[in-house]
Design a protein around this nucleic acid. Sequence first.
DNA 1: GTCGATTATATCGCACACGATTTAAATATA
DNA 2: TATATTTAAATCGTGTGCGATATAATCGAC
Lengths: 146, 146
Amino acid sequence: MEYEQLKLGNQVCFPIYAASRLITRAYQPLLDQLGLTYPQYLVLLVLWETDEVSVNDISENLILNTNTVTPLLKRMETQGLINRNRSNSDERRVIISLTKKGNDLKEQAATIPQQLLEKLDVSELDLHEIIDLRDKLNRLIDAIRN
Amino acid sequence: MEYEQLKLGNQVCFPIYAASRLITRAYQPLLDQLGLTYPQYLVLLVLWETDEVSVNDISENLILNTNTVTPLLKRMETQGLINRNRSNSDERRVIISLTKKGNDLKEQAATIPQQLLEKLDVSELDLHEIIDLRDKLNRLIDAIRN
DNA sequence: GTCGATTATATCGCACACGATTTAAATATA
DNA sequence: TATATTTAAATCGTGTGCGATATAATCGAC
């Protein structure tokens, strides 16, 4: 029996899964120069926008579980990128803040998005399609999260 | 200094990464009923289309490295879903074939795509947007792979 | 025909990613 | 105010995912 809905080429999930890994691979050589992995880079993006947030804030922003974020943050602490401190007002919370090293990386990271687009050879014309793609995905994400 | 290009909301990569994980999470309860993980399900999709392919064929179809696929296939062999046999014509190649159990799962899996759409509450109208999304992503994937 | 290059797969080490569970602190409610 | 509930992080176990490297078979150039 042949099922059209089971063909790899008809899946929506698979292109998202594959694109995600391909883009992460494309980022890696650029991030290597800063000594970062892609999830670590995402954590820094959050902190560069708002310093001193809780573990929970980070896991919600990145849509990751705390059992993924906790060890990720511990590795970043070991690397001297962030500090982890218990909140005084609520002893359950751990507040993440940037070290000087973590903050200084921002300048170097600023060129990464442009470098990535060049690497992927995205022209001005394609950029509209990319942005449309981003917005469609964000609507999909909102829909899934309810 | 504030950099617009470093804001999480302006990233293209992040929605793809987040959507990928959210969709995998949505699949998991459905796949649990078949005792499969999402990558294992993808391997079966390939084999249900074409039985008896090499490790390399699978890794190219799924855009995964062989060092990811080899242990994945070993676990599937342990579960009795597939067989792994050296090719006679080329002793370097390992040919993957479905067992009866692996083949029989196809019937049960046939309802999964529809169940997922219902779970994500995708209406007929949204379906066009989803398909457009799929096609855009596939063009992006082709562009990245050159 | 032989030896260096290429190809197919496997091994190793490390970093996610997540479901299930645990621990401790804060909050709600009787 | 004592206790049940909720909330915030952490811990545990398993399964990817990938860069670097190894191994063995095949191919290619001479």
